[in-house]
Write a protein that binds this DNA or RNA. Structure first.
Length: 634
RNA sequence: GCCGAUGUAGCUCAAUGGUAGAGCAAUUGAUUUGUAAUCAAUAGGUUGGGGGUUCGACUCCCUUCAUCGGCUCCA
């Protein structure tokens, strides 16, 4: 029987049935067959030795595709589990998926895995790859699967199998003496895994639930060549250099102090200057987009938090109350109740809506000690918060405006790659289904109208409303949520918010929480990492360092500095009696964008020599030309 | 909070049970320099805190705090 197979390049070839993707790959080229990892037949992922028995579309995956990587890493995780089982037979295996970068496997074992043990496991893995053990698939019934893993005493696997709906195909993959429950597909054999490294260990709860037992997790990464592995490890090293915590120290931007307390940020003059510039831009943009600024206190009486409901659903993130004149006050974890109180201080007509109340509001939240992370997750932080109160008709325009406004602002800071999520109704929502539908559709339509790529996080919304989040990645590719646009069906009701409509009746407004940057702290952290500390000129605390070569040019340097300052350029001069090379080195290390080098020649000819950070000497020129060049970068 | 690692001078790091060191930074002096580190001197420490073992602890043990990597949650 003849089959027609459509190949990735859309050409069609005929084969006699059955044929495997591997044979097709070999037919195309030996190199492709060597690189191939798995195949997609009519849209379904299969092993390379899967038998094709009907006319099919075939896509071959190599390590270069996302799917290829996932399969490669997943096979490596099975390999690691095999090595662990051989070395430590009493350890129970649980789950071991591929993740965004690499893979992990969780084991039930009391002792932690030490670094020496990781090396031992790696060595065993190496031996197993040399044996070219094929990964073989076997399908079996639920009971057969349970019996098999019961015989091996792998209770976690049994728990997993029991959760699989009856009638679903249950498959296992076996390489050598190791068998694992797995949907597949997998590499043809272990010899395909050429280069790997076990990176770190950690604890992880069974099924991510802290009520469950804590397992021991091993993370690793693998590649089809040593070259790629080395490149990856180098990349990790490189990423460390742009860690915002390191940059914060090197550039003297911020610190945290044991005595002050964990998760509480001290902004040094340089960092504070950058923050000031961010805030200045932020305020300007908000005024241009019809926001009104408000200020609110840092504490509020317990009644407020009872009304808002925070004492119920947000209690574990709030700090203990303080007693003032026999009344309980709480430090604020959110700004919303205050903004609502401002709204409620008067009656409002539909003519006043939409009302956009904005504040750089500092909040304090209890975060568990283990989760604090530099500036990215702290206990005291300033949100660039705003609440938009509007009618149903105004919703689409408001949401679109927030989206374009947010992305414009993020782009102004140099960000270009965002991950955008639409999170929909969770399991126990408050509010009317109708409102959820309107709000979710509004969000979805806005995204689509603006042609924004997004992913849907089904059921990932807050209990009080659906939301859109924009995440930005840090140096290590970890995504951090910055922008968030959240509907709220809870607080307007709890606070009984109203406006008087054209019909002279009271109506409940819609309320949207939104933060563009998220928090000053987190945004600052991602900004630093994104630019590796080389901030855009408009954000640099010192834009120009004037460097006299000898003491003889000090007067001229002072003059130049004054002239630059008068032009609105942030300039300083380095008048220490150090050699020019030293002063340049220091300015370069501080990542100051421009240097004006002043020597005897410059003074005599009334010129300056300009140097650009990371670029080098730009030559001698009139001060006016230098200023033009500097301003061009703005 | 849980699992693990780490904590020595302002910073980066030495010192594996026997007198806590180096480089940079700081201070003082000399030097007046042409595009990424001039030289010298001085000062700087309850080795995160507390407790224990020991003749003797940075080193070993307990405890506590903090940081780092994860788990969970979120700006």
């Amino acid at each position: 029987m003849l089959l027609r197979i459509t190949l990735p390049d859309s050409s069609i070839k005929e084969y006699s049935a059955p044929v495997t993707p591997l044979k097709v790959a070999e037919d195309i080229s030996p190199r492709l067959a060597d690189a191939a990892i798995a195949a997609e037949v009519n849209g379904k992922l299969v092993d390379l030795n899967h038998e094709i028995t009907e006319d099919s579309n075939l896509v071959l995956h190599t390590f270069t595709t996302e799917t290829g990587k996932e399969i490669y890493w997943h096979s490596t995780s099975h390999l690691m589990a095999q090595a662990v089982k051989q070395l430590y037979p009493k350890v129970k295996v649980t789950i071991g998926p591929a993740i965004e970068q690499g893979f992990y496997y969780d084991f039930d074992r009391d002792e932690p895995f030490t670094e020496e043990e990781l090396l031992k496991i790696e060595a065993r893995m190496k031996e197993l790859t040399a044996q070219n053990l094929p990964y073989t698939r076997k399908e079996l019934s639920k009971q057969e699967a349970i019996d098999m893993f019961a015989a091996q005493n792998e209770d976690y696997k049994i728990e997993l199998i029991q959760a699989i709906p009856d009638g679903d195909i249950i498959s296992t993959y076996q390489q050598g003496d190791f068998i694992d429950l797995c949907r597949g597909p997998h590499l043809p054999h272990t010899g395909k895994i050429k280069a790997f490294k076990l990176l770190k260990t950690s604890g992880a709860y069974w099924r991510g639930d802290e009520k469950n037992k804590m397992l021991k997790r091993i993370y690793g990464i693998s590649f089809p060549s040593n070259k790629e592995l080395t490149a990856y490890l180098d990349m990790l090293e490189e990423a460390k250099k742009r860690d915002h915590r390191k940059l914060g120290k090197d550039l003297d931007l911020f610190s945290m102090d044991d005595e002050v307390g964990p998760g509480l940020v001290l902004w040094h003059p340089n960092g504070a200057m950058i923050r000031h510039l961010i805030e200045e831009y932020w305020k300007d943009m908000h005024l241009r987009h019809g926001y009104k600024f408000v200020y609110s206190p840092h504490v509020g009486r317990s009644n407020l938090w009872h009304t808002s409901g925070h004492l119920g659903f947000y209690n574990e993130n709030m700090y203990a109350p303080m007693d003032i004149d026999g009344q309980e006050y709480y430090i604020k974890p959110m700004n919303c109740p205050f903004h609502i109180a401002i709204y409620k201080s008067a009656m409002h007509s539909y003519r006043e809506l939409p009302m956009r109340l904005a504040e750089l509001g500092t909040v304090y939240r209890y975060e568990r000690s283990g989760v604090l992370h530099g500036l990215m997750r702290v206990r005291g932080f300033t949100q660039d918060d705003a609440h938009i109160i509007c009618t149903a008709e105004q919703l689409p325009t408001e949401v679109e405006n927030i989206l374009t406004f947010s992305m414009d602002m993020l782009r102004h800071f140099g960000f270009e790659n965002f991950q955008i999520y639409l999170s929909t109704k969770p399991e126990h929502p408050v509010g009317e289904d109708k409102d959820w539908e309107i709000a979710t559709e509004t969000l979805r339509k806005s995204l689509e109208k603006l042609g924004i790529d997004y992913a849907v996080d089904e059921g990932g919304g807050a209990f009080y409303g659906p939301k859109i989040d924009i995440k930005i990645k840090d140096a290590l590719n970890r995504a951090w949520q910055c922008t968030t646009i959240q509907f709220d069906f809870n607080l307007p009701t709890r606070f009984n918010m109203e406006y008087i409509g054209a019909d002279n009746q009271a109506h409940r407004p819609y309320m949207v929480h939104r933060a563009v940057l998220g928090s000053m702290e987190r945004f600052f952290g991602t900004l630093l990492e994104y630019h590796a500390g080389n901030l855009p000129l408009w954000l640099c605390p010192v834009q120009v360092m004037v460097i006299p070569i000898t003491d003889a040019q000090i007067e001229y340097a002072k003059e130049l500095t004054t002239k630059l300052l008068a032009q609105g350029i942030r300039a300083e001069s380095d008048m220490r009696s150090e050699k020019i090379g030293y002063k340049i080195r220091e300015a370069e290390l501080k990542k100051i964008p421009f240097m004006l080098i002043i020597g005897k020649n410059e003074v005599e000819n009334d010129k300056v020599t300009l140097r650009r950070h990371t670029v080098g000497d730009l030559g001698s020129m009139e001060l006016a030309d230098a200023i033009t060049k500097i301003k061009e970068e703005h």
